[in-house]
């Protein structure tokens, strides 16, 4: 008897996605779906899709969904969770959506400690609209709105969302993962499991930032895109857990020179 070693998670629908070859949205979708299945919460999970490449995410998960306007997914998720605390609510957002137009919503959602889970996909570029500079675009990285490469004197340095949100006292869990190798994907899944579990246990806000490649808009083949992510993004966006319910507030260090 052949043994089934690979099957589609129940929380993932049997449809073809629109994502480009080499894009990791599909992998991240699958990890989320597996976590939802394994936690046994599919029937009471509601997702919130953003505007961005994952605008059609509602077509890919076998759960109820809201399609939010650009950047407002954390506010929509807040509305859902406050209306129906029994539901498991997650938003799925990209870097333009979450870190640019939706910055106010994500910070305040995190700071209020909304009992929702946010999956933040960071591919350092705007995909949907055709490769413009994102708040997370790397210094020197070429995008259609920074054709000479991101000039940090002009556009500032890329925003590190996981670090930024982990300065808040409220959030229960903030972590950064990547899925470009099998081992890292396993870690990413574990972080997603922690994030969803903490929500289900009634702990507050959790966010997992997932680094992703965009071969189409980066204009390089998938394997090369993976190498670029490792070489360029990983040193700037370190992987790991930035905040847990146990970690306390950050104490300021004394000034190392000047008047004490």
């Amino acid at each position: 008897m052949p043994e089934t070693v690979f099957s589609r998670p129940e929380a993932l629908r049997d449809v073809t996605t629109h994502y480009c070859p080499g894009c990791t949205h599909g992998t991240i979708h699958r990890l989320i779906a597996e976590v939802i299945d394994e936690l046994g919460v599919r029937e009471r999970t509601v997702g919130v899709a953003p505007v961005g490449c994952s605008v059609l995410a509602y077509n890919y998960f076998e759960t109820d969904f809201h399609e939010a306007s650009h950047g407002r997914a954390p506010a929509v998720a807040t509305g859902i969770k406050r209306a129906r605390p029994d539901l498991v609510v997650f938003s799925y957002q990209g870097d333009g959506d979450l870190a640019s137009i939706g910055m106010a919503e994500i910070i305040h959602c995190a700071n209020r400690g909304e009992k929702v889970t946010v999956v933040f996909v960071n591919n350092a570029i705007y995909g949907m609209t055709g490769g413009q500079m994102a708040p997370t675009t790397m210094p020197g990285q070429v995008a259609t709105t920074c054709p000479l490469g991101r000039d940090v004197d002009h556009a500032g340095h890329p925003i590190r969302i996981a670090e930024l949100l982990s300065t808040l006292r409220t959030p229960a869990f903030v972590a950064r993962a990547s899925v470009h190798t099998p081992l890292l994907a396993v870690n990413a899944k574990e972080m997603l499991r922690r994030a969803f579990s903490l929500q289900i246990e009634g702990r507050c806000f959790s966010l997992v930032e997932v680094l992703s490649t965009c071969p189409t808009n980066w204009g390089i083949p998938p394997a090369e895109a993976t190498r670029w992510l490792e070489k360029t993004m990983l040193p700037y966006y370190p992987l790991g857990v930035f905040k847990t319910p146990e970690s306390g507030s950050r104490e300021p260090r004394p000034l190392d020179r000047g008047v004490r």
């Binding site: 480009c20 070859p21 080499g22 055709g130 490769g131 259609t144 071969p215 189409t216 808009n217 980066w218 204009g219 390089i220 083949p221 998938p222 394997a223 090369e224 895109a225």
Partner: peptide, 13 residues
């Protein structure tokens, strides 16, 4: 060149 970037993502094939 913006449109041609997509070709770059297929350079390996």
């Amino acid at each position: 060149d913006v449109g041609a970037r997509v070709l770059g993502s297929l350079a390996d094939v």
